[in-house]
Design a protein around this nucleic acid. Structure first.
Lengths: 217, 217
DNA sequence: CATCCACGGCCAGAATACGAATCATAAGAA
DNA sequence: TTCTTATGATTCGTATTCTGGCCGTGGATG
């Protein structure tokens, strides 16, 4: 069951979110201010948070700071003409935003998109002799768990989600680290190297000279 | 990887474009005025350009003149009530336009549409007995992979995307290497030669004396 | 037929990309 | 706190690819 937290101080909106998402098969909890939201996030775990920017008490941006550490994807809700807010939100690590008033179908499409990108819709990925559980973030080979670090896992998942595709170093950097690729360092190579080794994918992930890396079938 | 250039002098908008497109899997670069855009277009190659009309310095229309020569599709960004601009833009060869403020989903839909019309979303290209997979960047003949270097691949793809068209050496240089064609070297001939050989296209790619090269059907 | 110039083929040095090892710092657990 | 682990910058070595120069060939032009 996928759990979603909807944070909005306007009760009718929050209720609308809860009902729409509930109908679509998600388990949705509501919070009506920043404090309540923070408490819930502390106490429970969610797969996705829908966050209104304008909140009494702690506002959405402050809450974002808090949420970011938990790595839970956030879609935030903004008023029609608050472009600056949207940018600020995306900068702060939000996955997407929805402009109020929103269409319920659009909402569902975006929720699904974000969940898919985070691998929360499909919980088991089998590839290259490995089994990746995207919910528990565990990777196993023949039932034995691989002790992967955070970056290694992210990398592994990126390749697993794009088998056969050449991923350039800048793409990899943007997807795993975020931000612009710093040409001068060898960070990406280094981590690919470590991940390959742990995953036993030394022959599977191959460098494509001058282009990037590819996970072969 | 599909590369998009977003030209807009309003930083928040440009940033919004970059983040949204980036999240959708495109590689997006920003320029904040006409000069910067022109320089980038000169230096790199893009698959699509998003162009704001109102720009300081060189405006969007002037830039359009410049871009048209490069054959890169353009989507205009216009203000809500600038109907005349829209018409002018389409007349000048823009592929589509988007009215600001725009919805990100709409933007993505239009971007996808334009890319599809230009065959840039196509991942499998079959020509001259070869099959080119632009995602895995692999070229196969009868199922056997051709070991191409980066420049060879870029060249092959350029010809494959322009069958029957005479490509001048300076055009080829600009598209594959970027920057101005250095008359004094034989780099282009050399690489075409190698590529032809590996691809088995010795009789397919023919020199057009004094003009360039053409891939014959 | 003679001349000019574009193009093909080849080579070696230059440039670049990648892998491995090492070290310093940051983040996290005990 | 202290210890451990994770992360990322740096350096070096090697393999691969790129490039410029030279020469030969052959088409274009008169």
């Amino acid at each position: 069951m996928i759990r979603i937290l909807a944070v909005d101080d306007e009760r009718p909106i929050a209720e609308l979110l809860r009902l729409s998402l509930g109908r679509a098969g998600y388990q949705c909890t509501c919070a009506y201010d920043g404090i309540e939201a923070a408490n819930l996030i502390e106490k429970e775990t969610f797969d996705l948070i829908l966050l209104d920017i304008m909140l009494p008490g702690i506002d959405g941006f402050e809450l974002m700071d808090y949420i970011r550490a938990t790595n839970v994807p956030v879609i935030f809700l903004t008023a029609k003409n608050a472009v600056a807010d949207r940018v600020k939100g995306l900068r702060m690590g939000a996955e997407d935003y929805i402009i109020k008033p929103f269409d319920v179908l659009e909402l569902l499409a975006r929720v699904e998109g974000v969940l898919r990108r985070h691998g929360k819709l499909q919980t088991l990925l089998q590839i290259g002799g490995l089994e990746i559980n995207t919910l528990s973030m565990q990777v196993t080979r023949d039932g034995a768990e691989l002790p992967l670090t955070r970056k290694e896992y992210d990398l592994l998942l990126l390749f697993a989600q794009n088998p056969g595709v050449v991923l350039s170093k800048s793409t990899i950097y943007e997807r795993v680290w975020g931000g612009e690729y710093p040409e001068s360092t060898r960070t990406v190579e280094l981590h690919i190297q470590r991940m390959k080794k742990k995953a036993g994918w030394d022959d599977r992930i191959k460098p494509v000279y001058g282009m990037g890396y590819r996970l072969e079938g």
